[in-house]
Amino acid sequence: MYNISFTPDRPLTYHLEDDQSLARLSLVPGRGGLVTEWTVQGQPILYFDRERFQDPSLSVRGGIPILFPICGNLPQDQFNHAGKSYRLKQHGFARDLPWEVIGQQTQDNARLDLRLSHNDATLEAFPFAFELVFSYQLQGHSLRIEQRIANLGDQRMPFSLGFHPYFFCREKLGITLAIPANDYLDQKTGDCHGYDGQLNLTSPELDLAFTQISQPRAHFIDPDRNLKIEVSFSELYQTLVLWTVAGKDYLCLEPWSGPRNALNSGEQLAWVEPYSSRSAWVNFQVSTE
C-alpha cells in the first residue's frame, strides 16, 4: 500500500511511503524540491546534514539536490550568451528555489509531481523562459525521478541538468565501484587519468568526472551494510561524477547531462528547441548483497 502525507512544520515536508517494502521518502518542495530522506527497511540510504539544512544561508550537504541550469561551476561564475554575460553560481539556482506541488497519486506507486518555472530573478541569470516538471516515484526499493524540461520561449535553450545524491556510507575502504568508463578527469587538478576500477575512496577528497561512459548505469557495493546501490539513467545523462570527502559519511555518484562549463564550452551541452520539451529519467535502486 502506498501513502503520501505531509508535516506542516517549517519547512513543509512531504512523505512518500511503500508500506509493503518498508520504504519511505521525504521531500521539501520549498527548499529546491530537495529529497531529504530515503530509508529502506529502516536503513538510511542518504546522508543528510540537518544542522546545516537549518541555516538557509548555507548550501545543503545531503539528500538529493537538483542541478540546473548548470552542473558544477563556471569560470568566474560567468555564462556568456549572445554577446552578453550572465552570472550563475555553482550548480545553478534550481536547488535554492521553491518548487510547486502540482500532483500526487498512490495507485501504482507513491508519486509526487513538482514544478519550477522561470521568474524575473532566473531571467537575470539565465535568459530563457522555461518550465521543469519532476515526478518522484517511490516503488519497492527504487526511486525513479522523471523529468520534463520545457522551453517556453522563441529561442533555442541550452542547459545542463543533474542530480547530486549523497549516499550514506560509514566504511569506504571496502566499497567496490562499477563505473563504465576507462578514464576520468580529476576536477581538482584538471588532470586526466586512466581508470581500472580502483580508487582510493579514503583520500582527503575525490572529485572525479567520468565524461566518456559506455553504459547508462553504475553502482557501488557497501559491504558494511550489505547493500548495492545502482544509478541508471536515460540518454540525456552523459557524465558521471564521483565526489567524496574523508571523514564524511557519504559517497556521491552524480548523473550529469554534461561536464562543468558545458554552457560555455558546448561539450555535451543539451538543448531544447523553441516551444518544445525534452524528457529524461534517473533511477536509484537498492538491493541487498
Results as ranks from 00 to 15, higher is better:
His118Leu: 09
Phe134Cys: 07
Asn151Phe: 06
Glu131Gly: 03
Ala125Trp: 05
Gly174Ile: 06
Gly92Lys: 06
Lys89Ile: 11
His164Ile: 11
Leu116Tyr: 00
Lys89Ser: 09
Gln104Met: 09
Asn109His: 06
Phe128Asn: 04
Ala125Arg: 08
Gly174Ala: 08
His141Glu: 15
Thr106Trp: 02
Arg111Ser: 03
Ser135Asn: 08
Leu138Trp: 01
Ser135Pro: 15
Gln139Ile: 11
Arg156Thr: 15
Asn109Asp: 15
Pro98His: 04
Asp154Leu: 14
Leu123Asp: 15
Asp154Phe: 12
Ile175Trp: 01
Arg148Pro: 15
Leu161Arg: 01
Ala94Leu: 08
Trp99Gly: 00
Glu100Asn: 12
Leu138Ile: 06
Ser142Leu: 11
Pro127Met: 05
Phe128Ile: 10
His164Leu: 02
Thr106Lys: 05
Lys172Met: 01
Leu143Cys: 07
Ser117Asn: 08
Asn151Lys: 11
Gln139Trp: 07
His164Gly: 13
Asp120Lys: 01
Asp108Asn: 11
Leu123Gln: 14
Glu131Gln: 11
Gly162Asp: 00
Arg115Gly: 13
His164Lys: 04
Asp113Val: 03
Arg115Ile: 12
Ile149Cys: 05
Phe130Met: 03
Gln147Trp: 09
Ile102Trp: 07
Ala110Asp: 04
Phe159Val: 04
Gln139His: 13
Gln137Ser: 14
Pro98Leu: 06
Ala110His: 00
Glu131Cys: 03
Ala110Cys: 05
Ser135Cys: 09
Lys89Ala: 08
Val101Tyr: 05
Thr106Met: 04
Tyr136Asn: 01
Thr122Trp: 07
Phe163Ser: 03
Phe159Tyr: 15
Thr122Lys: 02
Ala121Lys: 10
Arg170Ser: 10
Lys172Pro: 00
Phe168Trp: 03
Thr122Ser: 14
Gln155Pro: 15
Arg111Asn: 00
Lys89Thr: 10
Arg144Cys: 15
Ser135Arg: 05
Ala125Met: 12
Leu97Arg: 10
Asn151Gln: 13
Leu161Ala: 14
Lys89Pro: 14
Gly153Leu: 09
Glu124Lys: 11
Gly92Ile: 13
Leu114Pro: 02
Asn109Trp: 06
Leu116Ser: 10
Gln139Met: 10
Asp113Ser: 08
Gln139Pro: 15
Glu100Gln: 13
Asp154Tyr: 12
Leu138Ala: 02
Met157Asp: 11
Leu123Gly: 08
Asp113Gln: 09
Arg144Met: 13
Gln137Arg: 06
Gly140Val: 11
Gly162Glu: 03
Gly162Phe: 02
Phe134Glu: 07
Met157Cys: 14
Leu143Ile: 13
Leu161His: 09
His91Glu: 05
Leu123Trp: 07
His141Val: 10
Ala110Glu: 01
Trp99Val: 02
Gln107Leu: 09
Gly153Arg: 09
Leu152Asn: 05
Leu173His: 08
Leu173Gly: 11
Glu124Trp: 05
Glu131Val: 02
Ile102Gly: 10
Arg170Pro: 12
Lys172Ala: 01
